Computed example of a mutant assay.
Amino acid sequence: MFSIKELFKIGLGPSSSHTFGPVKACEYMKSNYNADYYDVTLYGSLALTGKGHLTDVSIKNVLKNCKVTFDFKTKCEHPNTMCIKAYSDYKEIASHIFVSIGGGQIEMDGKKNEEKPHIYPHSTMDDIQRYCREHHLRLNEYVNQFEKEDFDLYMDSIFEAMIQSVKEGLTKTGKLPGDLKLDRLANALYQSALSAEDSIDRNALLLASYAYATSEQNASGNVVVTAPTMGSCGVIPSILYHFYQDQHYQKKTLIEGLKVAGLIGLLIQENATISGAKAGCQAEIGAACSMAAAMIGYCQTQTNEQIECAAEIGLEHHLGLTCDPVGGYVMIPCIERNAVAAQRSVDAARLAKYLRNVRRNRVSFDMVVKTMNLTGNKLPIELKESSLGGLAIVVK
């Protein structure tokens, strides 16, 4: 598996697969070819929801002099496929096929990112757990053993970016961009939380407001962190912010927990996918909930087995979740879904803490990741980030 640095990335929203990834592809073309014109063709989900995801706008911001074509008919192996051709003096000088595989990561011409080193010797939770038992390691220590020396500094920057996305989002009011004309709700939710008399309501509303804050920042094209994607970027930051500002956890503890969350995300990407266009929202929100539950488990000093159980619960109960963005925007149901998943990650960690004390889980984390991948393959294209089904055709 690659470094967690490949999973957590800071960038502009609203979509890691539909804007962040294509932007990286365009930057590659721009830096490698002395071209004066580009022809970009988007296929599959990139074409179907490209307008709402600002894919064409992001591409033109990088390449400037270019034509963007939405091809709705050509079938590709991966739904997030694009072709970029570079021209100089009206002659084609380069042509590459890019695939945006999720989380802002891209592959070119069928190559599986072979230039990026695999730093982890294991690719399943079962193998990692076995190694940790043999060497008496917690999951964060396992991560620290294989990441490079600059990793802590990088994770500190990720932590700060997540905290900042919540802070900025809480201060914003008005409407989100786009045709849906949705109001920003993070600030209103936060004010409601402050006036809540019941402590349970207060904490739940605080958590929701933080998830809304980051998700609204993303929907507005502002800076967020892929966690593991931009469509699910509100879940982990909401937990971090709540634990840091309201529950007064130490920053060091939270960053170590963030490493554990990253490990869970890597395992999901390695053995399934984190792309909504590939497997529905179970691959994005489900993955984020799983990662956040594992992070909470670590921060609450749960055992490795309890942490695995928390991650498994977080993902299992999002199986089959569809990706059906209304109008192609990362807004409905995406923003509210981030808030719900944040709540569920807390529940998953709590449940795992006590369940794992009384019995061994029948369903392992590896099993549920495999199941998510199989389920994603069975979902019709209408329910995988195409805006051709589900809420996208019911909500007007």
Rank of each mutant, 00 (worst) to 15 (best):
A161N: 05
L176N: 08
S275H: 01
I4G: 08
I307P: 08
D201C: 11
I97P: 01
K116M: 09
Y354Q: 12
D324A: 02
F72W: 10
K353T: 08
T226M: 14
L205Q: 12
H318K: 00
P333S: 04
Q343W: 13
I296D: 02
A186N: 14
S232Q: 00
G221Q: 05
T124M: 03
V395Y: 14
K9D: 04
R202F: 09
V363Y: 03
K251D: 01
S17M: 05
T375K: 07
L319Q: 05
S290K: 01
D366E: 09
F243R: 08
G328F: 00
A261C: 13
L391H: 11
I296T: 15
I128M: 08
M1V: 11
N361V: 02
K9F: 05
R359S: 13
L185K: 05
A339S: 15
H317R: 15
G280K: 01
D39S: 15
K172S: 14
E77A: 15
K30I: 04
K353M: 13
G389P: 11
G110K: 04
E197R: 13
F159V: 02
I274K: 11
I313F: 13
A25Q: 07
C66I: 01
E385A: 04
Q129V: 07
A161R: 05
D36F: 07
N271E: 04
A392F: 01
S165G: 10
E92C: 11
E114F: 10
K167C: 03
N80Y: 02
S100K: 01
L153S: 10
H122M: 11
P177W: 00
V326Y: 10
V363K: 14
S45I: 02
Y142N: 05
L391I: 06
F98C: 05
L137Y: 06
E160P: 03
K30C: 05
Y38R: 07
S215N: 11
K51R: 15
C26S: 06
G50A: 14
K167M: 06
Y249E: 03
Q247M: 12
E197P: 02
N357G: 02
G102F: 10
E160Q: 14
C83M: 15
C76D: 01
T375A: 07
G104E: 03
I59R: 00
L189Y: 11
L182Y: 03
L383G: 01
Q306M: 07
I200P: 00
N187Y: 07
S238Q: 09
G286Q: 00
N377T: 12
L194T: 02
H53R: 13
E270Q: 11
Y244D: 05
L137F: 05
G265T: 10
S165W: 06
I268E: 02
Y154V: 14
Q302V: 00
C289G: 06
I255D: 05
I10Q: 03
R350E: 09
C83A: 12
I307D: 08
T81D: 00
E385M: 04
L207Y: 03
F365Y: 08
V260T: 15
E6M: 09
K172H: 09
V223M: 12
I274N: 08
E308W: 08
K172M: 13
L351T: 15
L48G: 02
D126T: 09
T229P: 04
P79M: 06
K251N: 04
I381C: 01
Y249W: 15
